[in-house]
Amino acid sequence: MRAVWALMRRGHDLVVTAMAVVAGLALVWLMVAIVWSVGMRNLGMQPHAWLFTSTEYGVFYMTMLGAPWLVRRRGHVHIELVTATLPDGVRALVSRAVAAGCVVVCGYLAWRGYLLVQTNIARMDFDVRAYFYPRWLLTIAFPVSFGLMAVEFARFAVGRELMHTGQAGIHE
């Protein structure tokens, strides 16, 4: 039982890290796509329309795919005001409660995102830019990303580590 749990955790960590790597590659792709397309244009060629479109979608995928990884790194800025003034025991309690609140928010958005994907598939929705791109290929990022973020926040709610340090200031 314990071994299965450990395996699941390793699997989850691997998925989150792999998504962050893809997000990093998407960032580099933004540079490549623009340089490529400006280069073609100035050589008198027609830049591929998908180069432009891919940068707009790239920003979205990058943000959603990298978000769970940033939760693990405590990279989402939060302000320590109340938590900094509390004694250790109470602070731990508040910190876990806030993390649990984040689990609820992200979990709910993951659920609504999942329903949105189903709607998009049922309605055959397209995102129309240079191409007709199936909308569900974009919205699928919501259940995946918010779902994994919920798991990462759950670690701060019940795990060994806390999200808040108790030092005043904006933290990451």
Partner: peptide
Amino acid sequence: RLRGNPVYNAFFTDYLGAQVID
């Protein structure tokens, strides 16, 4: 160098053969 837009790109590229920049 023609500024494009999904509404009329079909005309600009397919018929006019212009260099379309979105």
